[in-house]
Design a protein around this nucleic acid. Structure first.
Lengths: 191, 191
DNA sequence: GTCTATACAAAGATAGAC
DNA sequence: GTCTATCTTTGTATAGAC
């Protein structure tokens, strides 16, 4: 593997585990097996390294990665929505660094406009994705067109928070929560 | 005001705005108007100061502070639930440092067992509080007894995440979200 | 209870050799 | 592309005077 990617991968897990501030370039350099100044050859500062990581992660978790609108039909809509969500939850469970790093981005975004923009973009991709998906559901006749925006906001908020709570090992019934949320969203449909 | 409280109050807003690591004791001392070593007279370390703050904040946001079960009757149940939630949301909007600091605790809790316990205790106070409240609602006949636990988890998760998103200025319709969430929770009740 | 002065460690970053 | 050596800053924390 190239040094560049090695640095990124190492930074990925170190930032996730220790947080941005508590991860020093020395630590990263040591784990990669190079010297500290070598990092500066690839990244002009610690901040720039962090941004690069942010972009890579945001790219990996876009809405379309988990929810593919073309797979949703009138007969499988609810199941498909549940299933895609569960896959997403499972993915995050498999790589806890994901959620930890995302949390780290969230907290840094309150102090860094550039990070905030990236985080917001991800959240909006979910909001708009869910809204489009529900709109598709309306045209399929699996739900009414009421409160679509709020419903999309709810799905976004819930799937995101499930992720957060999981990484804190809060003992909620995550699968049950998601199923419940989906069924409530689609409820009161059908004639 | 006593120096002790002055330090706590100053630390409160500085930790909230800059985060734990980026807030130095020098900054706190300067803002309070004392010297750095003076802080050590009251708090044996920066960590201890942070713990003290954590306890104070957790105490201020317990479930009972916002939701008083005795005020819920058969006729006002839904309205009351909506109203208490909105009050909570408004409270957090009035003091953004609240949410920011809570976020800070959340992130630190992934690396510090002591903090994790406090954070979990707060979340559980909401989970158990909502469950008891819904149980009360069942005996009042305003909702069925199905899925009480999941419903309580949902209310907890949603009100918490509303708070998070608000502090990031994500443009969701927070009042609408909470109303929708409450109405879905109580839906399918009544005969 | 609060100060000045200081010890000590570690961080981010740069200069310049190889 | 990677190194050694070093600069500069800042942090937490302590000793001891007042």
């Amino acid at each position: 593997m190239q040094t560049y990617e090695l640095i990124l991968n190492t930074a990925y897990s170190l930032f996730a585990r220790n947080g941005y501030e508590k991860t020093s370039l020395s630590m990263i350099a040591k784990e990669v097996g190079i010297s500290k100044p070598a990092i500066y050859y690839y990244f002009s500062s610690k901040e720039v390294l962090f941004y690069a990581l942010l972009q890579a992660v945001c790219d990996e978790i876009r809405f379309e990665k988990f929810f593919s609108i073309t797979q949703f039909s009138a007969t499988n809509f609810a199941d498909q929505l549940v299933q895609c969500g569960l896959t997403m939850i499972q993915d995050q469970r498999d790589d806890p660094n994901y959620s930890l790093l995302m949390k780290e981005f969230m907290i840094q975004s309150t102090r860094d406009e550039k990070i905030l923009v990236s985080v917001k973009t991800v959240i909006e991709s979910y909001l708009n994705g869910f809204e489009a998906l529900l709109q598709h559901g309306v045209s399929l006749g699996v739900l009414t067109g009421e409160n679509l925006r709020v419903k999309a906001e709810m799905l976004t908020l819930v799937i995101d928070q499930i992720d957060n709570y999981m990484s804190l090992s809060i003992g909620f019934d995550y699968e049950g929560l998601w199923r419940h949320c989906v069924s409530q969203t689609l409820q009161g449909a059908r004639s």
